[in-house]
Computed example of a mutant assay.
Amino acid sequence: MGVFDFIKEVGEKLFGASEAQAAPADKIKEELKKHGLDAGDVDVKVEGDTIKINGTAPSQEVREKIIIAAGNTLGTAKVEENLKVEGGGAEPKFYTVKKGDNLSKIAEAQYGKGKANRYNDIFEANKPMLKHPDKIYPGQVLRIPD
């Protein structure tokens, strides 16, 4: 089980969400479906600004994308997840975007000096939530692949 923090004042605005509370569970499930994430065996509950996710994910990648797709919504301060991964999974690695960041800067910080060209690895790892490598915003949480 993991508990992941998000900045609740930023993110995708879903119907029923506000800066005080997360969107209703059915809207979170719609958001996962919109991104093509297999959430058929996933149960979503919302308690104030916390989203609780339980069930099974088909892969570690889908598990991580479910966490960030749910967490990067307006009104969400925390995602508590208990997703089992078919075949097992590792602890996810996430990064919260800061003012002035771009994917190249993040890649160099995460992978080491001279690795800025790995920005595309981060971009690809966050599709379909990211549509363009230059369209990130402060407070957004990104998954960082190995």
Rank of each mutant, 00 (worst) to 15 (best):
L142Y: 10
N82M: 01
E61K: 05
L37D: 10
V85L: 09
Q140H: 02
E9V: 00
V44F: 07
H132R: 10
N120G: 07
H35G: 13
E81T: 03
T56E: 11
K131W: 02
R118N: 05
V79R: 13
A39E: 02
I122S: 14
S18K: 05
V46K: 00
H35T: 06
A23E: 04
D26T: 06
N117R: 00
E12P: 03
E19H: 00
K99D: 14
F94V: 12
I67M: 03
I7M: 08
G89K: 12
E80R: 13
E80N: 08
L130C: 03
L37H: 10
L37S: 11
V42H: 03
V42W: 00
P58H: 00
P145Y: 01
K34I: 07
P128F: 09
A109W: 01
D38C: 05
E47R: 14
E19T: 11
A25I: 00
N120Q: 08
V97R: 12
Q110K: 15
I122K: 15
S104E: 06
E30A: 14
G16T: 02
G2S: 10
I67Q: 06
A90I: 11
F123L: 03
V79W: 15
F4M: 03
F123G: 03
K84V: 07
L32V: 00
I53S: 08
V85S: 07
L74V: 14
V79A: 15
G88N: 14
S104R: 12
V85P: 10
P133M: 14
G139A: 04
T73D: 07
A70Q: 08
Q110D: 08
A22V: 12
M1G: 11
Q60P: 04
I51K: 08
A17Q: 04
P92M: 10
F6Q: 00
M1L: 04
V3K: 15
G75D: 01
E12T: 05
V10A: 06
R63S: 02
T76D: 13
K78P: 09
P92C: 05
P92A: 15
E47S: 09
L130W: 12
S59D: 04
P58W: 01
Y119A: 11
E81S: 12
P128N: 06
D41K: 15
I136E: 11
I7S: 12
K78H: 09
R63Q: 11
E91S: 06
E30N: 11
N82K: 04
R143L: 14
N72S: 01
G36S: 05
T56N: 02
E19S: 05
N102C: 13
D146F: 07
E91H: 12
I144E: 02
D5N: 14
P128C: 00
G48M: 01
N72M: 01
E86T: 15
V46R: 07
P133W: 12
F6T: 02
M129F: 15
E91Q: 06
D5C: 06
D38G: 04
M129V: 10
G40W: 02
A77D: 13
N126M: 11
K99C: 05
P145E: 02
G88S: 08
